[in-house]
Structures are given as C-alpha cells and as structure tokens.
Amino acid sequence: MNTFDTLSQLCNAVGVSGAENAVAQKAAELLQSYGEVVVTPALGNVMCRVGVFDDKKPTVILDAHMDEIGMIVTYITDDGFLKVSGCGGIDSRILLGQQVAIYGKEKLIGIVTSTPPHLEKDSTAAPDIDEIYIDTGLDGERANELISLGDIVLIENDLERLQGGRVTAKAIDDRSGMTAILLALDLLKGRDTFYNIVVLFSSQEEIGERGAATGGFLSKASTAIVVDVSFAKTHGESDENCGIMGKGPMIGFAPSLSGEMSDKFKLIAEKNRIPYQIEVMNGRTGTNADAIGISGHGKATVTISIPEKHMHTPVEIVDLNDIENTAVLIAEYLCNCDSGEEASV
C-alpha cells in the first residue's frame, strides 16, 4: 500500500462532521479486502471485522475519525450571499479570501468575502465565523434554487507534497489516522494477533466524539487504540507543549487512559526501535478515547497520535514517515502485547 496514495484518496474525499457519506464510501472501499464492512445505520460509522474472529481472543477497536471540520449554510441573503456556521472548531483566522466549495444541488464555487486593504478601517481583528459572508456569484433567486440551508461548505485543498516526507492538505486530521490503521492492517497480513480486530472509522468526532460513542458500544470490544493527530511544534512554540514532526508517533499517557497499555506501547516501540514520543494529558484527551473509553462496559484505551502542524486549517501538514511508524507500532503491539515483559517505566 502506498502511503501518499491512500492518504491522498482519503484527504480528497468530502466528509464534514454529520455529512460523511463520501469519505465513508471511500473508507469502506479501502477496508473491504480486510474483512466484513458495515456502515452503521444511525450515525454512519464505518466498521470492519478484520479476518476471521476467534472466540477465545479479546477484541480491540482501532479507531480513527473520518469527519473533517467545515461549514454549514445557515442563511441566504437577498443578493445571493451565504451565512455559515462552523462544523467543528475551525480556525477562523484563516477564513478571509478563501475559495470554498458549496455542496448544493450541484457543486458550486464560492469566495469568503473580505474588504480590500484600501477600504478596510480595522484589520486588527480576525472575524468570527458568523460574521463572514460567502460570495456565490449568484443572485438571490438562483442561489435559493441551487443551495439549501444545511448544505455543506468546505475549503478544499487536495494532498500535495512539500519537502522530504511532508505533505499538506485539508482533513489530514484525521485521515492520516485512518491511513495508519489501513497500513497496520496491511502489515498484519498473515500474522497472528493477540486480539480480534474491529476497525472503527468514526463519524462526528469534531462536534463531540459522537460516532465513537456509538461505534464503541457496537464493537463489544474490551480494548481500544485511538489514532488521531496531535500538535507538532510550529515556529516560535516551546518544546514543552508539542510533539516534534518526524520524530514518530506520540504515545498518550493520561488519567483517562490505560497506563498499562501506554507502558506496553512504549516498551514495544523501544524493543523494535520505532521512534516515538510521549504525550501527557492531565485528564481526558480531547479525542475519541474519551467517548470510547466509557462506551458499553468501558474499555481499556490508549491514544497513539500523529504529529500534525496547523490543525483545523486547510493547510495542515503531516510527515508520511510518522504515519508509517504509527502503523508499524500498532502492528507490533497487536502481535506482541502478550509477550509478558514488564514495561521499563
């Protein structure tokens, strides 16, 4: 499996929180060679039982969320401009002068309005998302024919290569987590795992981990590995607060996570010389782990995070090497987590 190609297919698919159909279809397609795939009827999670289940083994969920942040149409003005609200915590500093795609009756182009510097009296405030308008180039009547309230609006940047192993696109959060899980399944072909594996590509993470809560329940698993992105250091930030891009997956340690699993992951990374970083959180994690951990009878849960820059913008950056190392680490864990050695904490 080619990492860039898989990530590219996933990033380019549309899947704003609550409207994940297109990315779900792509996810189902990519999963079908590994096992039985279902799209859950209520919240639209994509779930896959990998291979043949052995009743004697415990079951683990590998979770990554499918949804991406975007916008939703809330109002159409008389002269054909749109007002929108955010789906997920969009970074509103990036909005002005962006080209957007409007998913109306057909796909339309729009522009986020801005006032040129020649006329702008105050450029010292970033606009709130409810202050912006989207220019459709249509008059009010035509706009109402083609666009409905509730339609999705998205800033679309397809995946492109930067220097080295770095790539940029929209929705790298969390299509890179999905890619890491698919790569891990590839690495596990023909290998015996300690667990039965359920893949959960979950919906609606960005608006409150809702797909993960229901998918976690449906999986009947006892254990979960949540793969998401986390903060990689950008210019001017301190090392204390961030991971470093290119230095490997970030193993989560938090009161809400299973310390045993975190320790085991660390041990396995060291044994296999897989680069890794530690990410400490002081309570919950702000990821699907929070919801999955308390779904059903509860689950021992760990987060494995891929360092990402510019989260929740259309110019997110990830390092393909980090995605690949995340896959290797997860695959090794699933094969060797019963090796019985104590973690070196």
Binding site: G89, D91, A126, T234, G236
Partner: peptide
C-alpha cells in the same frame, strides 16, 4: 509552502481574535 502557525486549540481567547 503553506502559511500557518500555532494550532487554534493552543491559543488564548484573545489570540484567537487576533490576526
């Protein structure tokens, strides 16, 4: 290249309003 900075999650309420 891309122009970006600190993730929005890690900004103070004041910083979020500031370009």
């Amino acid at each position: 290249g891309v122009i970006g900075g600190k993730a929005v999650h890690n900004l103070s309420a004041d910083e979020r309003k500031k370009p």
